[in-house]
Structure formats: structure tokens, C-alpha cells
Nucleic acid binder design. Structure first.
Lengths: 186, 186
DNA sequence: GCATGATTAGACCAATCGGTCTAGGCTTCT
DNA sequence: AGAAGCCTAGACCGATTGGTCTAATCATGC
């Protein structure tokens, strides 16, 4: 029992990072393998369908990470807007760490590639998990079920757009400014 | 003088369509050439730097198309919200025509690929052209310069996020619902 | 110690990638 | 008519792609 990440985890994490930077088709297996320090045989042992399998695992893992940040942001929040604001600031910090160059963690990695429908379904599921997690906190903070779902969708839509604009400008301000855009001046 | 599109235009349009569907790295030159009905020699005559040149031309062309839709939507609009609403409905219609499967026309095509910085700069410029076009109508409709720019950015951010969500769900409703999200119930 | 299934290791493969290069029209001058 | 330059045409190239396959190594049961 070591705390070394397993071979599988190293593959998923290296793939996540690279897909986020260069996209699905832009990332070669060779590069993933090199960064993970894993030979090709292991990849096809853990992911029999190869690259596509790995991409789906990466998408799922990424969604879980996002939900973790949502948890951290909303658990102690006094109201919905505070939760959103904390989330945006945390993600802006992450954005800066990533050199402002990566695609939005959630949305960036899942579209191109062969087998379009499989990736689309995976993306839809990831989206819904994330929105549901946010909506759950909305309800806990006093919103009705429908209002919470609507607020969560608006939030995620705004976040996705903001990340994209932040990326083209290389400035994380856009992310931190989202709450004001959505809910008016503080 | 015929009204046949030129070889160059056919290349740009085929590339735009394919990049939007499969991304930069996911699209092979062979496929672009086949759809455009153009041999390889012509490509490198019109675009000496090859694929990267073509992608930048496609991005620029796409931005111009978007601005055309903005013009059509805002020129006769009585106020800002009406302009935004018309734009969203027009784009929702386009979304349905495109089989709900393509990336957002503006944002989808410009990030991956080698020479990251060149593509980023091209994307930033395209963004700014589009936002400026919208902000211009905002001013014409009575907003102050800063307010108009802010409104335009919020609008484009929301649109970008909405397109992404619409795409994962294959439903254009999300696009049509954007004005209510941004400005409250009609 | 030995056998067994899981995992690692990497050589190897056909296909495809973006890009180069030479030849052959086609147009438009003089 | 002839020459010159723009554009088309596609054969060809080395590099790289995702994927397959066999052999070695590991851990764990008896």
C-alpha cells in the first residue's frame, strides 16, 4: 500500500492535462504515455478501447474535480451569490496557475474525435452532474427546486462563456467579474 | 465574371465547416480539399503556410458572418433586449440547421493546433470585433459607452456558454432562453 | 518452489498526416 | 503568334498517428 497513484490514475491525469491543452486529436498517445511514464501495453490493458476510453475517463474525472470545487465553495456559503463568487475566484486562481492557456476544464475536452455521439453523451452526463451539484446547494440555500436548477444552469453557462473569453485574453479578471454580471453590482 | 465562388473562398468555407465539426487537428487536409473540390497545389498557392493560414482565414471569415447576423438583429431593434433576442433566435435556427452538432461558430475553431499564440491572437481579435459590433448597437440604442461594452461582453459570454450547453443537449431551447436568463422574465 | 493470472514493456504495423515539388494548362499581355 | 505568370493538378515524401501482438515480469495462491 503506497500512496503512489496507480498506473491507471497517472494515465487519466496525464491525459486530462494534455487534452485540456491541445484537445483530443491534438494529443498523441506517445505524449500521454511519456508524461504518465507508462508503456503502451498498460494503456490497452486498462483501457481496451484505447484513446476514446481514456478520454471518457478523463472527462469523468474532471467533472468530479469540478464538483469538489463546487462543494468547497458552497458548503459554508451564506447565500447563493457568495457560493458563486467563491467558485469563480477559486477557478480564476486555477486559471492563473494553468498559465491562462488551457481550455475550460469541463467543456474543453469532450467534443472532437471519432465516435462523436459517445463523447457527446459523456459530456452531457458530466454537465448534468455539475449542474445538479450546484442546484443542490441552491435548494439548501433556500431556492425552490425549479429556481435552483435555473440558477445553476445560468451560473454554469456564464462560467463557461467567461472562461473562454478569459482564455483568449489571457486575463482571469473576466472570471472574477462574473457574479457582478449575473447579479448586478455587489 | 461568374458568380461561382473563387477557389480561395471554397477552401475557406469548406475549412470553416469542417473545423467547426471536428476541430483543427481532427480535420485532415485531404478532407478539406475533397469538399472544396480543389487540389493540394492550389491550397499552398493561396495559403503558403498551409493549414494554419487556412484556419486563420476561416476564423476571420466566421467572425464576419457573425457580425452580419448581429447587424441583421440590431439594425431595426427598438432596444437592446430586442436585439439580443432576435440574435439568439436567429442563431438557434442556425443551430438546428447544423444538426445541433457543430461547435459554436466563433469560438470553436480557434484554439488547438501548433503555434498556439498565433491562434490565440486571431481569436482575441475576432472576439473583439464581434463585441465591438454589438457594443456599437448598444450605444446607438442609448447606452453609455462603458455600459454598452459591458452589456455586449455579457451578451457574448452568455451566448457562448449557451451554445455549448445547447450542443451537449442537442436542444436549441437553451439559446432561445438566454434573454430571460440575462434580463429576467419578459 | 511452482503455477497462474494480472500487469508491464516495447517492437512493430498499416494508415494517415501535413507539406514539397515538378508539370501542365490557362489567361493575358505584347 | 509567342512569351510570361498565375493557378491547377496530383504524385510523392518522411514523420507521426492509433492500435496490435508477443514476451517478460510481477504478485499471489498453493
Amino acid at each position: 500500500m503506497t500512496d503512489e497513484p496507480t498506473t491507471r490514475d497517472r494515465l487519466v491525469q496525464a491525459a486530462t492535462r494534455l487534452f485540456r491543452q491541445r484537445g483530443y486529436d491534438g494529443t498523441g498517445l506517445t505524449e500521454i504515455l511519456a508524461q504518465a511514464g507508462v508503456p503502451k501495453g498498460s494503456l490497452y490493458h486498462h483501457f481496451p478501447d484505447g484513446k476514446a476510453d481514456l478520454a471518457c475517463a478523463a472527462a469523468h474525472w474532471t467533472a468530479s474535480e469540478i464538483i469538489r470545487v463546487i462543494d468547497d465553495s458552497f458548503r459554508t456559503a451564506p447565500d447563493w451569490r457568495h457560493g458563486v463568487t467563491t467558485f469563480c475566484y477559486k477557478m480564476a486562481k486555477l486559471f492563473d496557475i494553468l498559465n491562462s492557456a488551457d481550455a475550460c476544464p469541463i467543456f474543453g475536452l469532450m467534443f472532437e474525435g471519432p465516435d462523436h455521439e459517445r463523447f457527446r453523451a459523456q459530456a452531457e452526463q458530466s454537465f448534468d452532474r455539475i449542474i445538479a451539484a450546484a442546484a443542490n446547494y441552491g435548494e439548501a440555500l433556500g431556492l425552490g427546486p425549479e429556481a435552483a436548477l435555473d440558477a445553476a444552469e445560468t451560473f454554469i453557462i456564464g462560467f463557461q462563456g467567461s472562461w473562454t473569453l478569459a482564455r483568449t485574453r489571457r486575463k482571469s479578471d473576466v472570471l472574477r467579474g462574473l457574479p457582478n454580471r449575473l447579479y448586478g453590482p455587489a
